[in-house]
Design a protein around this nucleic acid. Structure first.
Lengths: 150, 150
DNA sequence: CGGTATCCCTGAAGATACTG
DNA sequence: CAGTATCTTCAGGGATACCG
């Protein structure tokens, strides 16, 4: 996933974003981080991931600037992993994925976790609009190719 | 990526969504589909993916209800692959990924493709809000666990 | 052109043992 | 507890040859 041959995706922000957080475990770690988890063992227990894999993923997420590792008061190498500002900018990605999942991947009455407005306890809205406020769907949007390497 | 052991993610819509479209090639195919591509060879040329892999990915995207394969007038097994309504619901995911990529993964003057409002040619906005219209960020949202399977 | 059928190979993931 | 180091397995992906 990391060093991919430069394809047209090179110039595509989606492709780059996917390169950074596009594999299963990284996204699940980020999801748990949004859910307030910070400790190695919390992630490990929540995900059932192998420890070496978790360590490696945390390392690259830190390298990429998604998480910071801050030493805890307790001991020596004890770290807490927290989302950076950049990491928090993944919030819309998480919300979008979640809404898609809720809409299409659960039976009507099937139990599921929900992401809600903390204050009101109600589901969130996600809106894509033009600068003038018009709602924009797939058919109202178009990809502008990069000028030179079109 | 497909048959993953049931982890807590079982109840997490994000995890399920990721199971459906969470690998590199599937997302890139969907991105190209949003960009108007429909033919096997278009995807193949755009992505530089091996043909067998592309065929397999198209097949599973169709199975999962993201794409439909419609026969073309031309010949026998010639297919066009188009986004279903469900597939189009991935639009917010693509926009969110793209915005993240644009914001954090490009140098200021580095060339990139852009997703714009077709009418105005201007970038899109993506807003997450509560039902009453308040803007919601990561700190204003909370994940409600599924009732029973806590 | 639009795929399918094989073969091979790498690299990512798991298990496990070890360390401070 | 919070990792690191090592080994092994296995499936995802590339290359290639073939078919209608």
């Amino acid at each position: 996933m990391v060093a991919r041959k430069s394809l047209k995706g090179d110039y595509c922000p989606s492709a780059r974003a996917l390169d950074v957080i596009g594999d299963w475990w990284s996204l699940m770690i980020v999801r748990d981080a949004f859910d307030g988890m910070t400790r190695f063992s919390e992630f490990q227990k929540s995900l059932g991931i192998a420890r070496n894999i978790l360590a490696e993923r945390l390392r690259t997420l830190v390298e990429r600037g998604i998480l910071v590792a801050v030493p805890t008061a307790e001991g020596r190498a004890r770290m807490e992993y927290r989302l950076t500002a950049m990491g928090k900018d993944l919030f819309p990605v998480m919300v979008a994925l979640r809404q898609f999942g809720e809409r299409h991947l659960f039976a009507p009455q099937e139990p599921r976790s929900r992401l809600v407005d903390r204050a009101a306890g109600r589901p969130l809205r996600l809106d894509i609009t033009a600068e003038d406020g018009r709602a924009i769907g797939p058919d109202e949007a178009v990809i502008e190719k990069v000028p030179e390497a079109g």
